[in-house]
Amino acid sequence: MDRRRDPAARLAEHSFPRPRRDGPPLIAFDGVSAGYDGAPVLRQVDLDLRRGEFVGIVGPSGCGKTTLLRTLLGQTQRLAGEVREHGGESGPLRVGYVPQVESIDWNFPITPEQVVLLGRWRESGWRPWSSRRDRALARQALDRLGIGHLRDRSIRALSGGQQQRVFIARALIGDPDIVLLDEPTTGVDIKTRHDVMHLLGELHRGGLTIVLTTHDLNAVASHLPRLVCMGEGRVVADGTPPEVLTPDVLRDVYGAEMVVLRRGRTVYVVAHDDAPLDPIAAERRHESFHAEPASVSGPASRG
């Protein structure tokens, strides 16, 4: 089959390398319970994140994905357990954070360059203006992400993908050990999602450690080297997409039957209501996604 016309083959091209799990963890959660106003959202979470990893946190809405990121940032109330951080030789762990684009006030009068320069607030000391070196660094970061020519526009005038790149540039200008992204592909169109994931892939190949949360199991999560699936504040599964995206795990966390189609490391999840009950028909239906017969697992196949 022509790979250019095969969506599965094209998706597989986006897949990132296998997890690199060597060396001590950058961040280790040891039985961590955390939440807000004394109420736990995360419960007894054990998790380690190592240098060079690219990890996706998945799970239904309200399962604790964002709270996990906020706990990594030290922004929640820790009720039990311990979070251990191991920074490099340069001192404490440097964390870059890219928030959900929905949380930003797009009417704020600010340019991409000014947004990126906020990431150097510490270095600019007591001066309200930025040094020539910081401005050069900001332009470098924007050029690296291909939006240097937009640096003086209003942030509002940029497309969703360009805005996302501005925030990634701000995270990168602080030379972080790890970058956390909260739903980087939510609310963006398919082209922007593709661009953002490719960009993150490039940054990961360059050695950056990345953790992101996502709702998109098929276009994002299934192409990441490692997934952590959460349900009701607990880590339910942790491993590669084929290990995590199984009917049993998905039923456990989403409370619904799912059909999982597999080809090698490529996984495709379909809600049971959307899938034909007969797995063979499901396979035929999704034939265009696969050059060879895919393995299908789900409620009907178990029966």
Binding site: L73, V98, P99, S103, I104, D105, I110, L118, F167
Partner: peptide, 24 residues
């Protein structure tokens, strides 16, 4: 105060969560 705290104030006003994560 605005002169010395300008960047911190702008950062917190624009993006409170990231400002906190960045050590402001």
């Amino acid at each position: 105060l605005l002169f010395v705290w300008w960047k911190r104030l702008v950062f917190v006003t624009f993006d409170r969560d990231v400002a906190r994560a960045s050590g402001v």
